[in-house]
Nucleic acid binder design. Sequence first.
DNA 1: AAAGTTCTTGACCGATCAGTCAAGCACGCA
DNA 2: TGCGTGCTTGACTGATCGGTCAAGAACTTT
Lengths: 207, 207
Amino acid sequence: MGRPSPDTKQILIDTALALIWMSSYGSVSVDDICKAAGVKKGSFYHFFPSKVDLAVAAMEHSYHEVKPLYDTIFSPDTPPLRRFERMMEVVVEKQTETLEKYGRVCGCSDTSLGCEMAGLEERIRVKFEELANRKKRYYENALRDMVAEGSLPPDTDVKAKAHEIFAYLLGQMTLARIQNDLGLLKRDLRPGLLGLLGIQDKAGSAS
Amino acid sequence: MGRPSPDTKQILIDTALALIWMSSYGSVSVDDICKAAGVKKGSFYHFFPSKVDLAVAAMEHSYHEVKPLYDTIFSPDTPPLRRFERMMEVVVEKQTETLEKYGRVCGCSDTSLGCEMAGLEERIRVKFEELANRKKRYYENALRDMVAEGSLPPDTDVKAKAHEIFAYLLGQMTLARIQNDLGLLKRDLRPGLLGLLGIQDKAGSAS
DNA sequence: AAAGTTCTTGACCGATCAGTCAAGCACGCA
DNA sequence: TGCGTGCTTGACTGATCGGTCAAGAACTTT
Protein backbone atom coordinates (compact mmCIF):
# COMPACT_ATOMS: atom_id res chain seq x y z
CA MET A 1 0.00 0.00 0.00
CA GLY A 2 2.81 2.45 -0.68
CA ARG A 3 4.26 4.77 1.91
CA PRO A 4 3.08 4.25 5.48
CA SER A 5 1.11 7.12 6.97
CA PRO A 6 3.21 9.47 9.12
CA ASP A 7 1.63 11.27 12.01
CA THR A 8 0.88 14.41 10.03
CA LYS A 9 -2.84 13.76 10.29
CA GLN A 10 -2.68 13.41 14.06
CA ILE A 11 -0.55 16.53 14.39
CA LEU A 12 -3.15 18.46 12.43
CA ILE A 13 -5.93 17.16 14.67
CA ASP A 14 -4.06 18.00 17.87
CA THR A 15 -3.07 21.45 16.64
CA ALA A 16 -6.55 22.28 15.40
CA LEU A 17 -8.13 21.13 18.64
CA ALA A 18 -5.82 23.33 20.68
CA LEU A 19 -6.26 26.42 18.52
CA ILE A 20 -10.02 26.13 18.17
CA TRP A 21 -10.46 25.31 21.83
CA MET A 22 -8.51 28.40 22.84
CA SER A 23 -10.30 30.79 20.53
CA SER A 24 -13.07 29.63 18.19
CA TYR A 25 -13.74 27.78 14.96
CA GLY A 26 -14.40 30.90 12.97
CA SER A 27 -11.35 32.79 14.13
CA VAL A 28 -8.90 30.01 13.34
CA SER A 29 -8.07 29.67 9.66
CA VAL A 30 -6.78 26.61 7.84
CA ASP A 31 -3.59 28.58 7.30
CA ASP A 32 -3.28 29.19 11.04
CA ILE A 33 -3.61 25.49 11.74
CA CYS A 34 -1.13 24.54 9.04
CA LYS A 35 1.40 27.09 10.18
CA ALA A 36 1.16 26.00 13.81
CA ALA A 37 1.37 22.35 12.82
CA GLY A 38 4.29 22.90 10.47
CA VAL A 39 2.32 21.38 7.60
CA LYS A 40 1.64 22.77 4.15
CA LYS A 41 -1.92 23.42 3.10
CA GLY A 42 -1.75 20.89 0.30
CA SER A 43 -1.04 18.20 2.89
CA PHE A 44 -3.94 19.38 4.99
CA TYR A 45 -6.33 18.86 2.12
CA HIS A 46 -4.79 15.51 1.40
CA PHE A 47 -6.03 14.28 4.77
CA PHE A 48 -9.19 16.32 5.22
CA PRO A 49 -11.64 17.25 2.47
CA SER A 50 -12.60 20.44 4.34
CA LYS A 51 -12.10 22.45 7.48
CA VAL A 52 -15.34 21.06 8.89
CA ASP A 53 -14.11 17.50 8.52
CA LEU A 54 -11.07 18.40 10.58
CA ALA A 55 -13.29 19.87 13.28
CA VAL A 56 -15.44 16.75 13.42
CA ALA A 57 -12.34 14.57 13.59
CA ALA A 58 -11.01 16.75 16.40
CA MET A 59 -14.25 16.33 18.37
CA GLU A 60 -14.12 12.57 17.99
CA HIS A 61 -10.46 12.53 18.97
CA SER A 62 -11.00 14.60 22.09
CA TYR A 63 -13.60 12.09 23.23
CA HIS A 64 -11.36 9.09 22.66
CA GLU A 65 -8.67 10.85 24.64
CA VAL A 66 -10.80 11.16 27.79
CA LYS A 67 -12.79 7.96 27.44
CA PRO A 68 -10.37 5.82 29.52
CA LEU A 69 -10.67 8.41 32.28
CA TYR A 70 -14.45 8.26 32.15
CA ASP A 71 -14.30 4.46 32.31
CA THR A 72 -12.16 4.71 35.43
CA ILE A 73 -14.24 7.36 37.14
CA PHE A 74 -17.54 5.63 36.44
CA SER A 75 -16.33 2.14 37.22
CA PRO A 76 -19.01 0.04 38.99
CA ASP A 77 -16.41 -0.58 41.70
CA THR A 78 -16.91 2.99 42.87
CA PRO A 79 -20.04 3.95 44.84
CA PRO A 80 -22.26 5.96 42.44
CA LEU A 81 -22.27 9.23 44.38
CA ARG A 82 -18.50 9.02 44.68
CA ARG A 83 -18.35 8.73 40.88
CA PHE A 84 -20.01 12.11 40.47
CA GLU A 85 -17.79 13.65 43.11
CA ARG A 86 -14.70 12.25 41.44
CA MET A 87 -15.93 13.56 38.09
CA MET A 88 -16.23 17.07 39.47
CA GLU A 89 -12.74 16.89 40.91
CA VAL A 90 -11.39 15.73 37.57
CA VAL A 91 -13.22 18.50 35.71
CA VAL A 92 -11.54 21.10 37.88
CA GLU A 93 -8.17 19.35 37.54
CA LYS A 94 -8.44 19.21 33.76
CA GLN A 95 -9.50 22.83 33.51
CA THR A 96 -6.57 23.83 35.69
CA GLU A 97 -4.24 21.87 33.42
CA THR A 98 -5.48 23.55 30.24
CA LEU A 99 -5.39 26.92 31.96
CA GLU A 100 -1.69 26.39 32.63
CA LYS A 101 -1.08 24.90 29.20
CA TYR A 102 -2.91 27.46 27.09
CA GLY A 103 -2.96 30.47 29.37
CA ARG A 104 -6.72 30.69 29.59
CA VAL A 105 -9.80 28.80 30.81
CA CYS A 106 -11.07 26.88 27.80
CA GLY A 107 -14.18 25.11 29.08
CA CYS A 108 -15.55 22.26 26.99
CA SER A 109 -14.34 22.20 23.40
CA ASP A 110 -17.39 20.32 22.11
CA THR A 111 -19.74 22.83 23.66
CA SER A 112 -17.90 25.84 22.25
CA LEU A 113 -17.75 24.28 18.81
CA GLY A 114 -21.33 23.09 19.04
CA CYS A 115 -22.69 26.41 20.21
CA GLU A 116 -20.88 28.25 17.44
CA MET A 117 -21.41 25.84 14.59
CA ALA A 118 -24.40 23.59 15.27
CA GLY A 119 -26.70 25.86 13.32
CA LEU A 120 -24.34 26.09 10.37
CA GLU A 121 -22.82 22.65 10.03
CA GLU A 122 -25.14 19.74 10.55
CA ARG A 123 -22.28 17.25 10.91
CA ILE A 124 -20.91 19.13 13.90
CA ARG A 125 -24.37 19.13 15.48
CA VAL A 126 -24.69 15.38 14.91
CA LYS A 127 -21.23 14.69 16.32
CA PHE A 128 -22.01 16.80 19.39
CA GLU A 129 -25.23 14.91 19.98
CA GLU A 130 -23.40 11.60 19.67
CA LEU A 131 -20.70 12.56 22.17
CA ALA A 132 -23.22 14.14 24.55
CA ASN A 133 -25.28 10.95 24.56
CA ARG A 134 -22.21 8.82 25.24
CA LYS A 135 -21.32 10.97 28.24
CA LYS A 136 -24.86 11.09 29.54
CA ARG A 137 -24.91 7.29 29.50
CA TYR A 138 -22.23 7.27 32.19
CA TYR A 139 -24.43 9.50 34.32
CA GLU A 140 -27.50 7.38 33.70
CA ASN A 141 -25.71 4.24 34.84
CA ALA A 142 -24.54 5.92 38.03
CA LEU A 143 -28.05 7.28 38.67
CA ARG A 144 -29.59 3.86 38.18
CA ASP A 145 -27.12 2.47 40.72
CA MET A 146 -28.14 5.20 43.13
CA VAL A 147 -31.78 4.24 42.68
CA ALA A 148 -30.86 0.60 43.23
CA GLU A 149 -29.01 1.33 46.47
CA GLY A 150 -31.87 3.50 47.69
CA SER A 151 -30.08 6.87 47.74
CA LEU A 152 -32.45 8.11 45.03
CA PRO A 153 -36.24 7.54 44.98
CA PRO A 154 -37.40 4.60 42.82
CA ASP A 155 -39.55 6.83 40.57
CA THR A 156 -36.55 8.94 39.53
CA ASP A 157 -36.51 9.84 35.85
CA VAL A 158 -32.93 8.79 35.25
CA LYS A 159 -32.64 10.15 31.71
CA ALA A 160 -34.07 13.52 32.71
CA LYS A 161 -31.78 13.81 35.71
CA ALA A 162 -28.74 12.87 33.65
CA HIS A 163 -29.65 15.64 31.24
CA GLU A 164 -30.02 18.12 34.10
CA ILE A 165 -26.60 17.23 35.45
CA PHE A 166 -25.10 17.45 31.99
CA ALA A 167 -26.66 20.86 31.40
CA TYR A 168 -25.50 22.15 34.77
CA LEU A 169 -21.93 20.99 34.24
CA LEU A 170 -21.93 22.45 30.75
CA GLY A 171 -23.26 25.76 32.04
CA GLN A 172 -20.64 26.00 34.78
CA MET A 173 -17.85 25.22 32.33
CA THR A 174 -19.14 27.68 29.75
CA LEU A 175 -19.32 30.42 32.37
CA ALA A 176 -15.81 29.60 33.52
CA ARG A 177 -14.63 29.86 29.93
CA ILE A 178 -16.31 33.18 29.29
CA GLN A 179 -15.16 34.70 32.55
CA ASN A 180 -11.73 33.10 32.16
CA ASP A 181 -11.80 32.24 35.84
CA LEU A 182 -11.95 28.92 37.66
CA GLY A 183 -12.90 30.45 41.01
CA LEU A 184 -16.65 30.11 40.71
CA LEU A 185 -16.34 26.66 39.14
CA LYS A 186 -14.29 25.42 42.08
CA ARG A 187 -16.64 26.97 44.61
CA ASP A 188 -20.08 26.31 43.12
CA LEU A 189 -19.83 23.20 40.97
CA ARG A 190 -20.09 20.70 43.79
CA PRO A 191 -22.99 22.07 45.88
CA GLY A 192 -25.10 22.60 42.78
CA LEU A 193 -24.63 19.08 41.54
CA LEU A 194 -25.41 17.67 44.96
CA GLY A 195 -28.54 19.82 44.94
CA LEU A 196 -29.56 18.37 41.61
CA LEU A 197 -29.09 14.90 43.13
CA GLY A 198 -31.25 15.93 46.07
CA ILE A 199 -28.42 15.39 48.53
CA GLN A 200 -27.37 17.66 51.39
CA ASP A 201 -23.79 18.83 51.27
CA LYS A 202 -21.79 17.96 54.35
CA ALA A 203 -19.91 21.25 54.00
CA GLY A 204 -23.16 23.15 54.37
CA SER A 205 -22.89 25.66 51.54
CA ALA A 206 -25.65 23.96 49.55
CA SER A 207 -29.27 24.31 50.52
CA MET B 1 -27.05 69.95 15.02
CA GLY B 2 -27.97 69.41 11.39
CA ARG B 3 -30.03 66.51 10.24
CA PRO B 4 -31.70 64.47 13.02
CA SER B 5 -30.52 60.90 13.32
CA PRO B 6 -32.77 58.42 11.53
CA ASP B 7 -33.16 54.94 12.89
CA THR B 8 -30.38 53.49 10.75
CA LYS B 9 -28.28 52.79 13.80
CA GLN B 10 -31.10 50.91 15.51
CA ILE B 11 -31.86 48.92 12.36
CA LEU B 12 -28.22 47.86 12.22
CA ILE B 13 -28.31 46.75 15.85
CA ASP B 14 -31.51 44.79 15.41
CA THR B 15 -30.34 43.15 12.21
CA ALA B 16 -26.93 42.25 13.60
CA LEU B 17 -28.47 40.80 16.73
CA ALA B 18 -30.80 38.59 14.73
CA LEU B 19 -28.13 37.37 12.31
CA ILE B 20 -25.48 36.71 14.95
CA TRP B 21 -27.97 35.06 17.26
CA MET B 22 -29.09 32.69 14.54
CA SER B 23 -25.61 31.71 13.41
CA SER B 24 -22.48 33.17 15.02
CA TYR B 25 -20.33 36.26 15.20
CA GLY B 26 -17.62 34.85 13.00
CA SER B 27 -19.91 33.62 10.27
CA VAL B 28 -21.78 36.89 9.85
CA SER B 29 -19.87 39.52 7.91
CA VAL B 30 -20.33 43.26 8.02
CA ASP B 31 -21.53 42.98 4.43
CA ASP B 32 -24.15 40.43 5.47
CA ILE B 33 -25.45 42.75 8.15
CA CYS B 34 -25.50 45.75 5.82
CA LYS B 35 -27.25 43.85 3.08
CA ALA B 36 -29.90 42.49 5.45
CA ALA B 37 -30.40 45.92 7.00
CA GLY B 38 -30.56 47.71 3.64
CA VAL B 39 -27.70 49.97 4.65
CA LYS B 40 -24.47 50.72 2.85
CA LYS B 41 -21.20 49.84 4.49
CA GLY B 42 -20.08 53.44 4.66
CA SER B 43 -23.11 54.17 6.84
CA PHE B 44 -22.29 51.24 9.04
CA TYR B 45 -18.85 52.64 9.75
CA HIS B 46 -20.33 56.07 10.32
CA PHE B 47 -22.19 54.69 13.36
CA PHE B 48 -19.82 51.98 14.56
CA PRO B 49 -16.02 52.17 14.53
CA SER B 50 -15.80 48.38 14.16
CA LYS B 51 -17.74 45.14 13.98
CA VAL B 52 -16.96 44.46 17.64
CA ASP B 53 -18.53 47.75 18.70
CA LEU B 54 -21.70 46.73 16.95
CA ALA B 55 -21.71 43.41 18.79
CA VAL B 56 -21.27 45.09 22.16
CA ALA B 57 -24.06 47.54 21.34
CA ALA B 58 -26.27 44.60 20.34
CA MET B 59 -25.61 42.86 23.66
CA GLU B 60 -26.49 45.99 25.58
CA HIS B 61 -29.61 46.49 23.48
CA SER B 62 -30.83 42.93 23.99
CA TYR B 63 -30.64 43.45 27.72
CA HIS B 64 -32.57 46.69 27.67
CA GLU B 65 -35.21 44.96 25.61
CA VAL B 66 -35.90 42.29 28.23
CA LYS B 67 -35.27 44.38 31.33
CA PRO B 68 -38.93 45.45 31.78
CA LEU B 69 -39.93 41.80 31.62
CA TYR B 70 -37.38 40.92 34.31
CA ASP B 71 -38.68 43.74 36.47
CA THR B 72 -42.19 42.36 36.14
CA ILE B 73 -41.26 38.74 36.76
CA PHE B 74 -39.07 39.53 39.77
CA SER B 75 -41.41 42.09 41.29
CA PRO B 76 -41.47 41.89 45.11
CA ASP B 77 -45.26 41.52 44.80
CA THR B 78 -44.73 37.98 43.58
CA PRO B 79 -43.75 35.20 46.02
CA PRO B 80 -40.07 34.44 45.38
CA LEU B 81 -40.48 30.81 44.31
CA ARG B 82 -43.22 31.88 41.96
CA ARG B 83 -40.76 34.35 40.41
CA PHE B 84 -38.42 31.54 39.43
CA GLU B 85 -41.27 29.46 38.10
CA ARG B 86 -42.54 32.38 36.06
CA MET B 87 -39.04 33.00 34.74
CA MET B 88 -38.79 29.42 33.49
CA GLU B 89 -42.14 29.72 31.76
CA VAL B 90 -41.03 32.95 30.10
CA VAL B 91 -37.75 31.40 28.98
CA VAL B 92 -39.63 28.63 27.22
CA GLU B 93 -42.11 31.13 25.75
CA LYS B 94 -39.33 33.36 24.44
CA GLN B 95 -37.44 30.45 22.95
CA THR B 96 -40.60 29.25 21.25
CA GLU B 97 -41.11 32.73 19.81
CA THR B 98 -37.61 32.94 18.37
CA LEU B 99 -37.90 29.41 17.06
CA GLU B 100 -40.96 30.47 15.10
CA LYS B 101 -39.41 33.77 14.08
CA TYR B 102 -36.00 32.55 12.98
CA GLY B 103 -36.69 28.90 12.22
CA ARG B 104 -34.31 27.54 14.82
CA VAL B 105 -33.67 27.39 18.55
CA CYS B 106 -31.28 30.24 19.29
CA GLY B 107 -30.62 29.96 23.03
CA CYS B 108 -29.08 32.96 24.74
CA SER B 109 -27.39 35.44 22.44
CA ASP B 110 -25.02 36.74 25.10
CA THR B 111 -23.83 33.27 25.93
CA SER B 112 -23.21 32.33 22.31
CA LEU B 113 -21.35 35.54 21.66
CA GLY B 114 -19.50 35.29 24.94
CA CYS B 115 -18.47 31.69 24.45
CA GLU B 116 -17.22 32.43 20.95
CA MET B 117 -15.56 35.77 21.51
CA ALA B 118 -14.70 36.23 25.18
CA GLY B 119 -11.17 34.98 24.65
CA LEU B 120 -10.61 37.19 21.61
CA GLU B 121 -12.37 40.44 22.42
CA GLU B 122 -12.03 41.70 25.95
CA ARG B 123 -14.86 44.20 25.56
CA ILE B 124 -17.30 41.42 24.78
CA ARG B 125 -16.14 39.52 27.84
CA VAL B 126 -16.58 42.61 30.01
CA LYS B 127 -20.05 43.30 28.62
CA PHE B 128 -21.08 39.68 29.21
CA GLU B 129 -19.90 39.87 32.80
CA GLU B 130 -21.82 43.08 33.33
CA LEU B 131 -25.07 41.68 31.95
CA ALA B 132 -24.62 38.37 33.78
CA ASN B 133 -24.20 40.20 37.07
CA ARG B 134 -27.29 42.31 36.45
CA LYS B 135 -29.34 39.18 35.84
CA LYS B 136 -27.91 37.30 38.80
CA ARG B 137 -28.91 40.21 41.02
CA TYR B 138 -32.57 39.44 40.29
CA TYR B 139 -31.96 35.86 41.41
CA GLU B 140 -30.12 36.96 44.53
CA ASN B 141 -32.98 39.20 45.59
CA ALA B 142 -35.49 36.40 45.15
CA LEU B 143 -33.25 33.98 47.06
CA ARG B 144 -32.87 36.44 49.93
CA ASP B 145 -36.64 36.72 50.07
CA MET B 146 -36.88 32.94 50.22
CA VAL B 147 -34.45 32.88 53.11
CA ALA B 148 -36.47 35.60 54.83
CA GLU B 149 -39.73 33.70 54.47
CA GLY B 150 -38.06 30.49 55.70
CA SER B 151 -38.33 28.43 52.53
CA LEU B 152 -34.53 28.39 52.32
CA PRO B 153 -32.16 27.78 55.28
CA PRO B 154 -30.74 30.93 56.88
CA ASP B 155 -27.13 29.93 56.14
CA THR B 156 -27.77 29.80 52.39
CA ASP B 157 -24.96 31.27 50.30
CA VAL B 158 -27.20 33.44 48.16
CA LYS B 159 -24.56 34.53 45.66
CA ALA B 160 -23.34 30.98 45.13
CA LYS B 161 -26.85 29.67 44.61
CA ALA B 162 -27.68 32.45 42.18
CA HIS B 163 -24.63 31.48 40.21
CA GLU B 164 -25.66 27.82 40.23
CA ILE B 165 -29.11 28.70 38.93
CA PHE B 166 -27.63 30.96 36.29
CA ALA B 167 -25.21 28.27 35.15
CA TYR B 168 -27.96 25.66 35.01
CA LEU B 169 -30.26 27.86 32.98
CA LEU B 170 -27.43 28.81 30.65
CA GLY B 171 -26.52 25.15 30.19
CA GLN B 172 -30.07 24.11 29.39
CA MET B 173 -30.43 26.93 26.87
CA THR B 174 -27.09 26.20 25.25
CA LEU B 175 -28.00 22.54 24.89
CA ALA B 176 -31.36 23.47 23.42
CA ARG B 177 -29.56 25.69 20.92
CA ILE B 178 -27.05 23.08 19.88
CA GLN B 179 -29.66 20.34 19.57
CA ASN B 180 -32.09 22.76 17.97
CA ASP B 181 -34.86 21.25 20.06
CA LEU B 182 -36.98 22.68 22.85
CA GLY B 183 -38.25 19.30 24.04
CA LEU B 184 -35.65 18.67 26.71
CA LEU B 185 -35.75 22.29 27.86
CA LYS B 186 -39.49 22.11 28.37
CA ARG B 187 -39.28 18.79 30.17
CA ASP B 188 -36.16 19.18 32.33
CA LEU B 189 -35.72 22.87 33.08
CA ARG B 190 -38.21 23.05 35.90
CA PRO B 191 -37.36 19.97 37.98
CA GLY B 192 -33.67 20.76 37.83
CA LEU B 193 -34.14 24.30 39.04
CA LEU B 194 -36.39 23.16 41.85
CA GLY B 195 -33.70 20.64 42.74
CA LEU B 196 -31.11 23.41 42.90
CA LEU B 197 -33.47 25.29 45.22
CA GLY B 198 -33.81 22.17 47.37
CA ILE B 199 -37.52 21.94 46.74
CA GLN B 200 -39.54 18.86 45.90
CA ASP B 201 -41.50 19.05 42.66
CA LYS B 202 -45.19 18.48 43.10
CA ALA B 203 -45.27 16.69 39.73
CA GLY B 204 -42.83 14.11 41.08
CA SER B 205 -40.33 13.96 38.23
CA ALA B 206 -37.65 15.62 40.29
CA SER B 207 -35.72 13.80 42.99
C1' DA C 1 15.37 -1.54 -10.85
C1' DA C 2 10.84 -0.39 -12.38
C1' DA C 3 6.26 0.41 -11.26
C1' DG C 4 2.72 1.98 -8.11
C1' DT C 5 0.98 4.43 -4.18
C1' DT C 6 1.10 7.95 -0.66
C1' DC C 7 2.42 12.11 0.86
C1' DT C 8 4.54 16.83 0.27
C1' DT C 9 5.23 21.11 -1.84
C1' DG C 10 4.38 25.81 -3.38
C1' DA C 11 2.16 28.39 -6.48
C1' DC C 12 -2.36 29.62 -7.49
C1' DC C 13 -7.61 30.69 -7.55
C1' DG C 14 -11.85 33.62 -7.09
C1' DA C 15 -14.39 35.16 -3.25
C1' DT C 16 -14.77 37.50 0.66
C1' DC C 17 -13.00 39.84 4.70
C1' DA C 18 -12.97 44.31 7.77
C1' DG C 19 -12.27 48.73 6.99
C1' DT C 20 -11.43 53.51 4.17
C1' DC C 21 -12.46 57.56 1.75
C1' DA C 22 -13.98 61.48 -0.89
C1' DA C 23 -17.75 63.25 -2.77
C1' DG C 24 -22.57 64.29 -2.59
C1' DC C 25 -26.98 64.89 -0.46
C1' DA C 26 -30.69 66.39 2.93
C1' DC C 27 -31.97 68.74 6.49
C1' DG C 28 -31.83 72.49 10.61
C1' DC C 29 -30.51 76.89 11.47
C1' DA C 30 -29.37 81.71 10.63
C1' DT D 1 -31.29 81.97 0.70
C1' DG D 2 -27.37 79.93 1.87
C1' DC D 3 -24.33 77.73 5.07
C1' DG D 4 -22.97 73.95 8.21
C1' DT D 5 -23.52 69.47 9.92
C1' DG D 6 -24.77 64.67 9.73
C1' DC D 7 -25.77 61.02 6.98
C1' DT D 8 -25.42 58.30 2.62
C1' DT D 9 -23.23 56.42 -1.27
C1' DG D 10 -20.30 53.46 -4.04
C1' DA D 11 -16.01 52.60 -5.40
C1' DC D 12 -11.82 51.06 -3.41
C1' DT D 13 -7.95 48.74 -0.54
C1' DG D 14 -4.79 45.07 0.89
C1' DA D 15 -5.21 41.03 3.44
C1' DT D 16 -7.05 36.79 4.11
C1' DC D 17 -10.43 33.25 3.36
C1' DG D 18 -11.26 28.04 2.06
C1' DG D 19 -9.90 25.30 -1.39
C1' DT D 20 -7.30 23.46 -5.90
C1' DC D 21 -3.76 21.61 -8.63
C1' DA D 22 0.21 19.63 -10.98
C1' DA D 23 4.47 18.10 -10.23
C1' DG D 24 7.78 15.79 -7.56
C1' DA D 25 9.67 13.19 -3.56
C1' DA D 26 9.57 9.09 -0.53
C1' DC D 27 8.50 4.74 0.22
C1' DT D 28 6.54 -0.28 -0.75
C1' DT D 29 5.82 -3.77 -3.70
C1' DT D 30 6.92 -6.62 -7.68
